[in-house]
Amino acid sequence: MTTDLGFWVLQTLNALQLSMLLFLLSVGLTVIFGLMHFVNPAHGSLYAFGAYMAASLAGVLGYWGGFFLVPLAVAALGAVLYFTLIRSQRRAGPMAQVLVTFGLIFVAVDATRLIWGDLPIGIAIPAMFEGQLPLLGVEYPIYRLFIIALGLVVLAALTLVLTRTQIGAMIRAGVDNDQMAACLGINVERMFFLVFVVGCALAGLAGAVAAPVLSVTPDMGLQILIPTLIVIVIGGLGSLKGAVAGSLIFGFVQTFGAVLLPTLNSVLIYALLAAVLVIRPEGLLPAKG
């Protein structure tokens, strides 16, 4: 089995697909942390909301209606959260943030149960991406290739914005030293808001994209939380490169671990996390070197 080239191609694609989904979730979280020093465990709940909204909208507007509207809706939700809770808690220290975001998670899980019920929901893969594509000797689901492509497009766009535009330069300055950035006349508040909302939109997008592959359940936000946190911590907080590296490491270790070392699999990723933190206590590619 493992001598077959098809096996490696197929599992590599599986690993990439998982990596890209995690990348969409973790990039927002890590940049928000880099800028605002705020870890937001409720990020997973936004992902769940995205998936549920996509499921609801799919019945009305079709899959693509949901695909474009969900990130906007989740961004709007993020904006509301920002003004009611996040802004006032930004300087309140990590303890208060942990408490507030745990409170948010509790509320979000029950809110999804109240609105959408306890039963898992599923939505169909959009018609244009049904079926499989022959690729390097294997047949691979087109929709999964779409997820990989989408991840790469978002990565390219973010890289471009962060390295080539003025706002990107401001964000990088803010991650480096927000007080200095403020002294240089950058409107730090507005930048925080922008980054937070974009991060939320990406979480919503991840939910909408994941919905046809997975089942949509009330606890999906909590389930994805730990993998996302592992990704950003392995990668190093605050950096785009770190989010990419962390996502790839997680995706590949998880996928190949599952098929090659099944008995060790559930321990493997945690062992890796512990090892990274012991050797490099701030992750592999932290924003501030």
Partner: peptide
Amino acid sequence: EWPAFQKTQDFGPFLANAKAS
């Protein structure tokens, strides 16, 4: 194949093995 309970959302890796078996 015995995927980890309640931790596995992506069954792709296992399905590939089933196909090759």
